[in-house]
Design a protein around this nucleic acid. Structure first.
Lengths: 146, 146
DNA sequence: TATTGTTATACTCTATAACTATA
DNA sequence: TATAGTTATAGAGTATAACAATA
């Protein structure tokens, strides 16, 4: 049941992102950087659950649009700080507002009590899968195998 | 929040499917056929939200494993009936049992009330995205259904 | 030798467009 | 001409491997 739901949510959000000239991953990156400062690109990649090589084109584009800045770490000249700019923050929040409007429309037909419980449950479950150790022992869904 | 959740659920179910030597789409097809009889491959493809050309390899494999049968429609020799076999039904239900065990483990940490509301909401939302006409508030499918 | 960021390559899914055989 | 099923081709997205600079 979750699969078609996510599919529909993504489909509903794509036009919003396109209107702001932002890719899906671009939005994910800006959101991660707006939520907390992240030092290196590798750390950023891990936070958003992507491969480090996968976000490079995204970072190039965001930097070209002035939405973030990359600066070399003087202490370790291999690494690059990556930080969201004020303009990036503005754009991220504008997009987020539109996206949330979309989501509220989807949730509009749930009874208020169910709706609250649904969102609360989503947070619990998302935290659970993000870090299985946070909840009671060994959920065991982390076997990525490779 | 939904994206990583689905990702985790799929990741958790892949080993189950592999243990039963069944592909993701194979499971989807068997489930659709077990829920209701479907006449043509095109109709089946639409029910599961896939392109008609995409399920052919899946059907070939399922048929080779004796999990479903394809027979020509005598009235229209272009079309092929597609029906799940008893063995297919057995396999589908065995897999479903394992999959549900997985899902229950994920949901185990929700308070009972939230858990019920969560599943209830999922059903509402899934139906909503599957058939947007229901969004007007249980208007039913009285009229010309497409 | 190991690590950060980068580039290049290969693989998986998916969608689209031809092709056949019937109608 | 149109349709059901099939096959072939092309594209997006992703993962993996090789690479350069620095440690």
């Amino acid at each position: 049941m979750i699969a078609p739901l996510q599919q529909a949510l993504v489909a509903a959000e794509l036009p919003v992102l396109r209107a702001h000239e932002l890719s899906m991953w671009g939005y994910v990156v800006l959101s991660a950087l707006d939520n907390q400062p992240i030092r290196t690109q590798a750390a950023l990649a891990e936070v958003i659950g992507a491969d480090k090589s996968r976000i490079i084109g995204v970072l190039d584009e965001l930097e070209g649009d002035g939405l973030l800045e990359r600066t070399r770490d003087p202490a370790d000249r291999r690494a690059r700080f990556v930080a969201i700019t004020d303009e990036g923050r503005r754009k991220r929040r504008a997009v987020q507002a539109d996206v949330q409007r979309n989501e509220e429309r989807v949730l509009a037909h749930l009874p208020p009590g169910d709706r609250e419980a649904f969102l609360r449950s989503l947070e619990v479950l998302a935290a659970e899968v993000a870090d299985p150790a946070t909840r009671a022992g060994r959920a065991g869904t982390s076997g990525t195998g490779r």
